[in-house]
Amino acid sequence: MPAVGRAIDTGQTQNDYWKPMFDGFDFSKKWEESEKPDVVFLVYNDHATAFSLDFIPTFAIGVAEDYAVADEGFGPRPVPPVEGHADLAWHIAGSVIQQDFDLTVVNKMDLDHGLTVPLSLMFGQPERWPCKVIPFAVNVVQYPVPSGRRCYNLGKAIRKAIDSFDQDLNVQIWGTGGMSHQLQGPRAGLINQPWDQAFLNDIGDNVDRLVGIPPEEYIREAGSEGIELVMWLIMRGALDDQVTEVHRHYHVPASNTAIGHIILKNGK
């Protein structure tokens, strides 16, 4: 979210407000340093930045060699540009379209905080991002948004595509988006910690429950912007049926939002 980006960009990560949240990422940063991914397939939502109401793709995959950082109304974030992995991105696009997912293929888009804040949280403030990124944008702005089940099945198709790629790469899948939060209207500020905790509990070993959650439950229980959690199901679909939890962190509040993250690796 923008506020987290600003805290990083203005050096406030160690103050009383932000420290407990950023501390939750210490482990994950070290883990990334040892894992050294070649490519992150980064599932995120564009926040009315690259896509206006003129074109609203349900799913859009970036196949470019590089991407600029967007100006969302207060100048671009002071972070490096993002390098794509066109070979793998085109391979995934082709494979997933042939598996009956009707992607929009994008050669040019600016990337907003939905993509760059997760990079900052996991990689800190390097001169250059340590890996390539395939941006995958999911419409969670204009209803109807894709269902949790559609997202989960898409994850499976993406996994199949990655497994059939002929280069040996260390690919990570990130599902992003705040946990419970509502940014708008008289009900703004809604946070549902038990609901979020149950989501974190189930994403590893009981994802069937999560896949069946209808959009109105996200809205009612997790706030209007809690719907972003469907993007986590794309990540989950791309992993093995059996996974091991490596790390988990949950914190309230980050500005208006409950922030949680979980690292899962394939296999028990």
Partner: peptide
């Protein structure tokens, strides 16, 4: 959000005005 960003104001400020 582009309006309050342009005003130099935060999501948290904007949310508070709505509540």
């Amino acid at each position: 959000a582009k309006i309050f960003s342009c005003d130099g104001l935060s999501f948290q400020y904007a949310a508070s005005t709505m509540t």
